[in-house]
Simulated scan of single mutants.
Amino acid sequence: MLLPSLENLACFEAAARTLNFRTAARAVALSPAAFGQRIKQIEEQVGAPLFERTTRRVQLTPLGLAMLPRARQCLAIAEDCLRTAMSPAPAPVELTLGTRFELGMSWIVPQLGKLTRRRPELTLHLYFGASDDLLRRLHDRSVDCAVTSARWSAASLAAETLHEERYAFVASPRLLQREEFTRPEHASRHCLLDIDATMPLFRYLADQMGGVGRFAFARHRWVGLGAAMKTLVLAGEGVAVLPLHMVAAELRAGKLRRLLRSAVLARDHFRLVYRRDDPRSALYAKLAESLRAAPIQ
């Protein structure tokens, strides 16, 4: 189906509004002959007359009356489209950001108000999940981007670096009063807390000290969340490597103590990860800029 041009629709609307072809022709800056040709073209496309014309008057046909509201709607949408394109204001956009529970609640959620004021065009929805879940959801497109320090090898993902993530090997003073932990051999007296059996957090220490095999812990407990690890460490239920931003206040207050203080733990970075084929890379760069402006507490 060949669609009518916006110019022809504008001529039709002007004729319907004025019911006078000469007046309508002046309104759209056309000669009467050119205007008449435009009306003829749109009537040929419709396949029926839109006007009843005599030497004394012009009237809309029933088909013309039915078509007029839609023609005006089309012209209004076209005008709004042009106005939007010419406007300096960014177009509204919605993104779903995936994040780990602890990081989201301690850092991203408190920043939502500032992000809205800084990027008023952006509506940011949140999804909370584990790191591997976030990466899966990026691939299946159920989240648009994710903040994570997890490693990945997929070439289909790209990232903007946000903040460095540092770690601390910690225990409660109450636990250390019962059993010291000043050498790797003392692991045999303690329970190691971590996310899961791959020990993703403890490896930031172990890989710097010869590997996990150097530490023969009495027990292991996998609790799924850094927040759960922190709660159990504070209760004296075990030792753990935790992100420094999670335990900095407790270390300052003496509620937790660093273990193996001479050991240098590996560091990582939080990144804003998104699909490489996503055409909104410039938007992710702006979002990353806003997140970098907010220190992780």
Rank of each mutant, 00 (worst) to 15 (best):
L225Q: 13
R214H: 06
L2D: 08
D80G: 06
R257F: 07
S106V: 07
R178Q: 14
A150M: 08
A218S: 13
L193F: 03
T61E: 10
R258G: 04
T198S: 15
S31G: 13
E289Q: 15
L124Q: 02
D268W: 05
A235R: 09
P110F: 14
A249E: 14
F21L: 12
T61P: 05
G104N: 01
R151P: 03
L272Y: 01
R174G: 10
P4M: 02
A253Y: 11
A218I: 04
R137G: 01
H125D: 11
L82T: 13
A216M: 10
T148F: 01
C11P: 02
T116L: 13
G211T: 01
D277T: 13
R276N: 08
T123R: 13
R221L: 14
P4L: 02
G210N: 07
N20S: 14
A218G: 09
A25L: 07
R38H: 03
L283V: 07
L65Y: 06
L65W: 11
R22W: 11
F217P: 03
L115D: 00
F270N: 02
A282Q: 09
E121L: 08
D194V: 00
F215D: 06
Q73R: 02
H245M: 07
E164T: 13
A27P: 03
E7T: 05
E102R: 01
L63V: 12
A71I: 10
F202W: 05
L260S: 03
P92F: 10
Q41V: 09
G224I: 05
Q45F: 10
S5C: 02
R53W: 06
E102L: 08
G254C: 07
K286I: 08
P69K: 08
G254D: 05
D194M: 01
Q59A: 14
D207F: 10
L291V: 01
S262F: 14
A171Q: 06
R83T: 07
Q41I: 06
A15S: 12
L30F: 14
R136A: 08
P110H: 11
L291R: 05
